[in-house]
Computed example of a mutant assay.
Amino acid sequence: MLRQIQTAVALIYPPRCLGCGGLVESDFGLCGSCWRETPFIGGTICDGCGLPVLGANDGFRLECDDCMAHPRVWSRGRAALLYRDQARALILALKHGDRIDIAKPAAAWMVRASAALLDDAPLIAPVPLHWTRLLKRRYNQSALLARELARQTGLEYCVDMLQRRRRTASLDGKTRAQRFAALGDAISANTRHRLLMQGRVILLVDDVMTSGATLTACSDACLQGGAADVRVVTLARVTKQ
């Protein structure tokens, strides 16, 4: 009976591509064309942010030019996609277009990308939004990704581990220095969860990493709150052209 109902639903609402809306074989999938236009990260990668780097993995820590020039507060980082082409379109749809259905497959991509970061049972926490921005947007896309990541890995998740104490201006178009200056002490550990954070490995989740200013502020807040280690995973990483 259940299979008959599922078949009927599939006939009425056939699976659609997350990118273009075309027909696909399964839910939450991409058609061949959109898959080719979605730049998944693979091969040799930077241990600091997950950006692809030249050369072979020789077992030693590898870092991109950006991470070498600006050492990260967190210990290791990964990203699933490069922020361009179809990946950029999907993230903007998730962030601003109410396409919360993208969170489930996106989290699956992040699980694969962050496999090396999941030892020691990290506590998953999203990058927070200020309450005024949350009220306007109605959801935090990073929290959606973090919750789904936790569900798919079975790891512990805390939606309000961090909080934004003050609203900051949009960071779009800002220079690296402006981004870091704008954040300052805007993010802090939630005092209600300090015991939960003590001595734990924290896995921070965000949708996009550009300069790393937001993730730096969040990592600082975690370490000041008593975390033993901080790792980061983002859905996408911005690259310099």
Rank of each mutant, 00 (worst) to 15 (best):
A80W: 01
R237P: 03
Y157A: 06
V230R: 00
I45E: 08
S170L: 10
Y83T: 01
A182W: 10
A113E: 01
K136L: 13
T38G: 06
I41L: 07
K136H: 15
I124M: 05
I5F: 15
E25W: 10
L30A: 05
V159L: 13
T239K: 12
K136G: 15
A217I: 03
L11R: 12
T153A: 08
D185L: 11
D101F: 03
T44G: 07
D101W: 04
A115N: 14
C17N: 00
R76K: 10
A106Y: 02
G199H: 09
L145E: 01
A121Q: 13
H96Q: 10
V111Y: 03
L145G: 01
L118M: 10
R99W: 09
L117W: 01
L118C: 06
I202M: 02
A150T: 07
I124Q: 06
L123C: 04
G97Y: 04
W74Q: 04
V233P: 00
D206K: 07
Q141S: 10
Q4L: 15
R165K: 09
D27V: 11
L129E: 09
P14L: 01
S26P: 12
L183E: 05
A69W: 09
A186P: 00
Q86D: 11
P126T: 06
Y83L: 06
R78S: 02
T168P: 05
L215E: 03
S142I: 00
M209F: 10
V233T: 08
C17K: 02
M197Y: 06
R231D: 06
R237S: 05
A227N: 02
A169F: 15
T7M: 14
C17V: 03
H193C: 06
T214G: 05
V233I: 12
L54S: 15
L18P: 02
T7Y: 11
Y83F: 09
M1H: 14
R237M: 01
N190K: 04
I12Q: 08
R84H: 05
S170G: 13
A56Q: 14
G97T: 02
E25R: 11
A182Y: 10
S26M: 14
A236T: 04
A79Y: 00
C20H: 00
T44R: 09
D120I: 12
R3P: 12
G226C: 05
G29N: 07
R147M: 09
H193G: 07
R138T: 08
L195I: 15
M197G: 01
R164H: 12
V201F: 12
M68S: 14
R36K: 13
C17Y: 01
L145M: 06
G42W: 07
A213S: 04
D65P: 11
R147S: 07
A169R: 13
A146M: 02
Q6K: 14
T214S: 02
Y139D: 06
G29K: 13
L129Q: 10
G22V: 01
T132K: 14
V9E: 09
Q198N: 12
C64P: 06
G212I: 07
V232K: 02
A87D: 00
C17T: 01
G29Y: 11
R88D: 11
M197Q: 08
V230Y: 03
S114C: 12
S211K: 05
D85P: 04
A186E: 04
V233L: 08
L2Q: 12
